[in-house]
Structures are given as C-alpha cells and as structure tokens.
C-alpha cells in the first residue's frame, strides 16, 4: 500500500526522501558504470510495462476478490537490483504525480518501501541465496515465492513504522501492524505465484533473457554503498543527537526557526503573538451562541502550532526526527546556495 502525505510528518518524510534519493544516486552511478546502453530503453519500457501490468487484474482463487502484480521482485530478477530500483522508483514518481498515489512528500517512503525492500533485501538475501548456483525449476519457484512474501512483509512494515513515527494517525503501532501484516502475507503469496508464472513463461519462451539477468552478478562488495550507508547513519545520528538536546522544545521546525532567527518568542507558544492572540480569543467569543471553550488540560491545542504532547516517548522521537530534518534542510540549503553561486560564476 502507498504511504500518504497526509499521514506523514516532515521529519519522517524528509528522512525517507534522503534515504531514497541516496539510493537513487547510488543506483544511477552503478547503472552508468555497467556501461550497458541496452539497459537505457529496456528500463524505460519495462517501467511502462509495470505501469500497464498493474492495471490488469486477475481473480485470486477461492476468494472472488482480484489483485494485480506489484512487480518489484520481477524487475529485480529481470534487470538486477540497481536497474530495478531505478525503474520502480520512476514508476512511483509518475504515479505520485499523475494519480497522486501517496503524494510527493510520501514519495521517499514509497520508493523505499516498494523499491528498496524487494531489490536490495528480498532479491539478494532471499531470492539469490535460495536459488543457489544451478537453479532447478523447483528452486526457482520456492525462491521466488519466499522472496515475494518477504518483500511484501517488509514494505507494509515500513508503512507502519513511518506512520507511527509521524504521529499524525492515532492508530496504535501494534494495532496497525496487526491489521497490515497478515493481509500482506496473503498479498505476498499471490504476488509470488504471479511472479513465478511470468518468470517461467519468459524462461520457456526466451531463456537467454533470464540468463543475462543472472549473469550480471550484483552481490559482491559494495564500497560505495557502505560509504553511503555510513554517511546516512552519521547524518541521522548527529541530527537525532542534536535535537535530543533541544527536546524541551515541542516542535522541531519551530525550534529550528527560533535558532535561525534568534527569536525566542516563537518557541514559547503562550508568549508573543500566540499569547496575545490567545488572550484576545479568551476575551472575545468566537461565535456568539456557542462557547468555544476548551477543556482545561490540553488547553491550546486547537490552532496551536505546538500541540504534540501525547506522550513523552513519542515526543522525544518527534524532536529527534525534527533535528534530522533540520540537518537535511541545512544540507539542502547548502546545495541551493552552491547552485546559485555556481550559476553566478557561470554568468560572470
């Protein structure tokens, strides 16, 4: 299922964007270095194929309901993980823009959930491992099936985690997970069966396609990936660490703005403009006949920019995430200013 903008906090969205963007950059470099220019049109049309295939439905036996191909694992088998990841990501970009599946901020999450897990977890660590060196028909079937299930367990779990850390939905973590995982077990099995069917069809008709895909050995050592992962880990750790310092501030963005402007007033919701406004509001009734009174405890929740006080742990997590976003934003700002400066240099 697609993660949606509406359920996402900017902290989680930003982090996942960074993760996905990093993986895209890594895969692009990798695909380029393979120097196989056949892949350029192939990835493009296979993406379009996936897009079209997702609109053709089939009946799930014994249920009467219908499903369609997800295709992450199928692409990984056909193209290898790097090209597959880029292809899946591109399809998700188009779906986000044209059909607003999820939305733009959630795109990072969706690319990660639906691209990274099948291409870089299910494919190398389940499919390849189970397939072994001389695949038989039986092994191909089992490996594909299990890999599909694993991929489709991890993806929705990603959704659950992202939703939980965003804290927009009130759905408790465990409940959401219990709702999502079993459904996706079924979906995963169906996906596995369909992938097996398509792969064996291709295998019968043009075995060299799969042979070619198998020949591209993807699982060796990945110096670049390690560097990237280390970089990401450092970014997340420093971001999280810094923001824990500021954990007394309820809202990360507010905190960041206060730091930037040096304006302490913004941090305290009861002071400054907000305080004044609240005072005005207390004096003047919003609507003449109805009282707009709030219960005593969560007094200024409605219309307050700093409402998240549900529980302490969640709050801490929220602030850490905010710190991470602060870090990412600073990075982005650096990029933008670099870009502007570069432009200026060119112009001179």
């Amino acid at each position: 299922m697609h993660m949606a903008d509406a359920l996402l906090s900017p902290a989680v969205g930003g982090t996942m964007w960074a993760a996905s963007a990093g993986t895209i950059a890594y895969c692009s470099a990798k695909v380029r270095s393979e120097l196989d220019d056949r892949k350029v049109p192939l990835m493009g049309v296979l993406g379009a194929f996936l897009f079209a295939a997702q609109m053709i439905n089939f009946t799930i036996p014994a249920t009467g309901s219908s499903g369609h191909l997800g295709g992450g694992l199928l692409l990984a088998i056909l193209l290898g993980p790097h090209a597959a990841f880029l292809t899946i990501a591109s399809v998700l970009v188009v779906q986000a823009l044209f059909f607003a599946d999820g939305g733009l901020l959630a795109l990072g999450c969706n690319i990660f959930n639906m691209g990274f897990f099948p291409a870089f977890v299910a494919y190398p660590f389940v499919y390849k491992k189970l397939l072994g060196n001389n695949p038989s028909r039986m092994r191909l079937t089992t490996a594909t099936l299990i890999a599909a299930v694993v991929g489709l367990q991890l993806g929705p779990f990603g959704v659950v985690l992202e939703t939980f850390f965003s804290g927009i939905s009130a759905l408790p973590f465990a409940t959401f997970a219990i709702l999502m995982q079993p459904i996706h077990l079924a979906i995963g099995i169906v996906e596995g069966v369909v992938t097996v069917a398509v792969v064996s069809f291709v295998y019968k008709a043009r075995p060299e396609i799969l042979q070619g895909a198998l020949a591209a050995r993807p699982i060796d050592n990945h110096p670049l990936r390690n560097v990237l992962l280390a970089f990401l880990a450092v970014a997340i750790l420093t971001g999280g660490g810094i923001s824990l310092f500021a954990s007394k501030n309820p809202d990360g963005l507010e905190w960041a703005i206060a730091k930037v402007t040096g304006n302490e007033e913004l941090a305290g919701p009861r002071q400054g403009v907000h305080g004044a406004l609240a005072a005005i509001q207390e004096k003047s009734a919003f609507l003449p006949d109805y009282s707009f009174k709030k219960p005593a405890e969560p007094k200024d929740r409605v219309g307050d920019p700093a409402p998240e006080k549900k529980n302490e742990a969640e709050d801490d997590l929220g602030t850490s995430m905010a710190g991470i976003v602060g870090t990412l934003l600073t990075l982005a700002l650096a990029f933008i200013s670099g870009f502007i400066l570069k432009k200026r240099n060119k112009a001179v």
Binding site: L46, F49, A52, A53, I56, F58, L69, V194, V196, A197, V198, S200, F201, V202, A205, R206
Partner: peptide, 10 residues
C-alpha cells in the same frame, strides 16, 4: 494471467 503478462513482457 501469468501467460498474458508474460506475453506482454516479451
């Protein structure tokens, strides 16, 4: 479904 998609894929 498998062979339909397989066909389209080829």
């Amino acid at each position: 479904y498998g062979s339909l998609l397989g066909n389209l894929l080829l």
